[in-house]
Simulated assay, not measured.
Amino acid sequence: MSEKYDDTAPSAGTGRLLTGVAWAILLLGLWLWGRGVTEVPDGISGPTTGDVAAVGRPAGAELPPPAKPLDSAPPERIDIPELGIQAPVVSRGLDRQGGIDPPPFDQPGVVGWYGSGTDPGAAGTALLVGHVDTETRPAVFYKLSALHPGGTIRVVRADGTVAEFTVDDVQVLPRDHFDAQQAYGTRESGRAELRLITCGGTFDRTTHSYTANVVVSAYLTGTAA
């Protein structure tokens, strides 16, 4: 599933980008503000809705075993070969409302990383966020929901290593009854995990926001120099 690009969106400056992305990031930020990145219990349940990765998933397909977590090092770039994504990663903090401050609106090709949380490749869950579109064109995570289990995500880190992650599920979680624990919680204790998050569902012209979030879950399975 991919977002439907619509160049007839409201023309109030960056309104569509601001409200759509800010809503998704605010949910994440509020949860982090109150709970902390690593305080969600392990063993959370599987997706209850919108498991887009299940479409075409081979029955009984086995994924590779997790690799040993790496030492901490901040990310510099993310590569998703299957989607043709190569994007710089920048550290972002929290804004005054407790939400993660997303990448600047005039840089839709940049991915934001919650820099006060887990480094990609280190034990825990690292969180990366990106825009799905602007008022005129697709943005960095426009095709994110097209990923499937077994797909590869590579994060180039400041220490020169490349952390290689394997996708284990892709969910579209509706705005109503949003479950932050399900979306962002560590799936298995001791693993190095990764979440990629963007807006999803449909664009509601009344609220000027998207109706869901796309959340890609992956875990560390290898490294490269």
Rank of each mutant, 00 (worst) to 15 (best):
A224E: 14
G185A: 00
F178M: 07
V90D: 06
A163F: 04
V40P: 06
A24Q: 13
P47A: 14
Q182W: 02
T125P: 01
R205P: 09
P120S: 06
G15C: 06
S11G: 08
D71L: 04
R205L: 06
K143N: 15
R96W: 05
S217D: 05
T136Q: 11
G201D: 04
T134Q: 05
P58V: 15
D204P: 06
D204R: 05
K68G: 04
E76P: 09
Y184Q: 03
V89E: 04
A67H: 03
G190M: 01
I78L: 14
T19V: 09
R157T: 13
L28G: 03
T211Q: 10
V172K: 11
V155T: 08
R187S: 01
S217V: 00
G34L: 11
T14P: 08
T134Y: 09
A67C: 01
W31N: 15
L63I: 04
P64A: 09
D169T: 10
G29R: 07
A192N: 04
Y5H: 09
V172L: 14
A87E: 05
T207W: 11
S145I: 00
L147H: 14
F178S: 00
D95K: 10
S189I: 02
V111D: 03
A53W: 08
G15D: 04
P120V: 09
K4P: 00
I153A: 15
S217K: 11
G160Q: 01
G34V: 12
F178D: 04
V111Y: 08
R187K: 05
I44S: 02
G151D: 15
